[in-house]
Nucleic acid binder design. Sequence first.
DNA 1: TATCATAAGTTACATAAAGTAACTGAATGG
DNA 2: CCATTCAGTTACTTTATGTAACTTATGATA
Lengths: 107, 107
Amino acid sequence: MDTSLICPRFESAISILSQRWTGLIIYQLLSGPQRFSQLTESIGISGRLLSERLKNLEANGLVTRTVYPETPVRIEYQLTEKGIALKPVMDEIQNWSQAWVKPVETK
Amino acid sequence: MDTSLICPRFESAISILSQRWTGLIIYQLLSGPQRFSQLTESIGISGRLLSERLKNLEANGLVTRTVYPETPVRIEYQLTEKGIALKPVMDEIQNWSQAWVKPVETK
DNA sequence: TATCATAAGTTACATAAAGTAACTGAATGG
DNA sequence: CCATTCAGTTACTTTATGTAACTTATGATA
């Protein structure tokens, strides 16, 4: 049941960002378009979940998928304007982490 | 396995914020100390998970728990300085949601 | 004293999401 | 035709989340 009193837009935003891995995917894509295998390696996510997350981000209009029919095929994911607009959020998370997270604490 | 190439502090921050409910809990507590039952109602989280999340936030130094031995007992949760420092992050999420999230989209 | 009410959890169990590793499909080079 | 490479998908196990009933502590009420 959802009896929340919080602004629905804010909740929607949080529900995207609080999904595991999506924050890191967006963070990575902020440095430019990347292909599937690059993302799995840099983030440490499995193909199964990366595939699921990217579909979701595409459906939410944050990411576009471009196929380059080379050999072997190259597929690049990049942020839309809506996705790039999350940069200030990521910047603030970065600021906070530099100021408050000790290098050791992992969880 | 974690073969990530991302800054460990940033990853740590993201791992806290990308845990379901923690963002909303912090957001709620930014408007002042609140008790357990208030949080369950405003957020729409179950007691089981709220309890677990608050313990976690306490362990991470984001929240403090204060017992007021009244009748019935009152227990208030409030953000530490470290927790309050997340306000800019929440503000940016708010900004983004106002600019980019359509009122309808729920997921 | 016995019973009741209330806040703040906890426990036990069902369902959903995430982790893992092997597999598939398309395209081309040998 | 066989091997290789990228981009996924499938089948299965483990972990996290949801739900609802239960517990504990404290004082109020009969």
